[in-house]
Design a protein around this nucleic acid. Sequence first.
DNA 1: GGGGTTGTGAAAATCCGGTTACCGGCGCCG
DNA 2: CGGCGCCGGTAACCGGATTTTCACAACCCC
Lengths: 270, 270
Amino acid sequence: MSSSTGTLRIAVIDRDGAFLKVLGKRLDAAGWQHRVLGGIVPVDELVAMKINALVLDMSVLPPEEAWPFLERVGGMLPGLGVIICTDESTVAQRVRGLRLGADDWVAKPCHPEEVMARIEAVVRRRRRRASGEAERGPLVVGELEIRGDQYQAFVAGRSADLTRREFELLQALSDAQGSVIERGEIYRRVWGYEMAHGDRSVDVFIRKLRIKLEQRSPNWAYIHTHFGIGYRFDPEPLDATAADPPAGQPPAAAGSASDPATTELEPADA
Amino acid sequence: MSSSTGTLRIAVIDRDGAFLKVLGKRLDAAGWQHRVLGGIVPVDELVAMKINALVLDMSVLPPEEAWPFLERVGGMLPGLGVIICTDESTVAQRVRGLRLGADDWVAKPCHPEEVMARIEAVVRRRRRRASGEAERGPLVVGELEIRGDQYQAFVAGRSADLTRREFELLQALSDAQGSVIERGEIYRRVWGYEMAHGDRSVDVFIRKLRIKLEQRSPNWAYIHTHFGIGYRFDPEPLDATAADPPAGQPPAAAGSASDPATTELEPADA
DNA sequence: GGGGTTGTGAAAATCCGGTTACCGGCGCCG
DNA sequence: CGGCGCCGGTAACCGGATTTTCACAACCCC
């Protein structure tokens, strides 16, 4: 469990040279990538950095900017760990910061090792939710095997050649196997931030995934659409009895789950 | 603010009377359930309590018990938020605690409101876990199970394939289980704005819902009409036996099941 | 029995997701 | 260093699912 955190990406917004220097050294020692920002940056940029945690000294920004910034960060990057590390503060400020989305608040001067530990603690919490099952045994369902440790999925022992995004999407879905996940939630889990209105990325990637999956495992349906809501991962064998005859749409009422609401794709392979 | 936190269950392991008293008051004020434990308890018990967070004063335990305890808690309840709240401590102790699984470490004396905020911050992340029955505990009545977290309703374990609106309508009705809701109110809750005069959408959707529900659960009446007023959600087993036995177990006879004329009116309301 | 309500069935209007094409960025290789 | 191919992301079009609107039958209560 010690190695759990792995390599992290951290952004630090501060100007305190001494602090930056000593913290930077620790960050290097831990092998975490980090970047120092002298001041406020557009949240979009933070998004692009794909960081795991942000260490912020509130005093580098005027209060009327700092709070909204904190709020915006929390809104766009609900999964980002935010550690406030500031000189002096009142209880009211700390409470406000924590309520606004900060995960921790440390008073300077503080020992860099403690900051490190707090970053770890915050990230650990965050990691637990989405994936972090790099360690978890590979998930096997249907003809599919999802190997979190390899960023790959295999069908009958053969790699499905998923790209990174495709794999993460599949993993996010399979993590919630059986239950419907809304698009926004999927996006948040895979992309890491809030989905913009009108973004169709999820749909497009779902399609790419389906293609690769169906191509290699024609008689299974893995991803089900829930109109107006999202998707559900739930491997089901397509009626195998009608192995080839594509026309055969057996209205087998009882047994099979022929739900009219979900747009099941036909094994319309070649 | 984010209404997210909702009601929480907290356990506090401490002996500092003054602190307990003042913190308890805050916890009450926030409407969070809490329980004070005078000392160490088996982790199993903590598990059984189904708490969201644990506030722990390390000094109530001898060090050689405290650390292993912390470790065990982290191991057994990876999702539990752990806030250490202790008198004095060294950096090394804090680092150790945080690495061992604590999510936060606050020094006493501390303002109870800050502790509250920190609990919130810690739990906030953890709450993001999906797939479980998080958001709103699934409501189960009759043969019906409504899962607010998934936009899905199940009848006897089988999805009712409700569309988004249908589901929202069902949820709105079931939220007020037992009481009559006027059309306008239903419309406002589901559609989100004022119903135009002459709009029949609610009626039409009520019908769709009834069809789907009755089709899958023929011996239950879920939605009742109140002439001139609105509708009421109140699952009642239909007494197929025609006799009086109230709890009469409907003998789901094959023949009667296919009877499409299930157009029964609610008997009499209270 | 009459006037206002609700239940039904279906057409019309919308909305939404599937699908395809295309664009810009990045890493690889010649 | 330029070209090529892969990958992620965006825009647009299309067909089908869903929602809304209608018209009328069935009903309820006075």
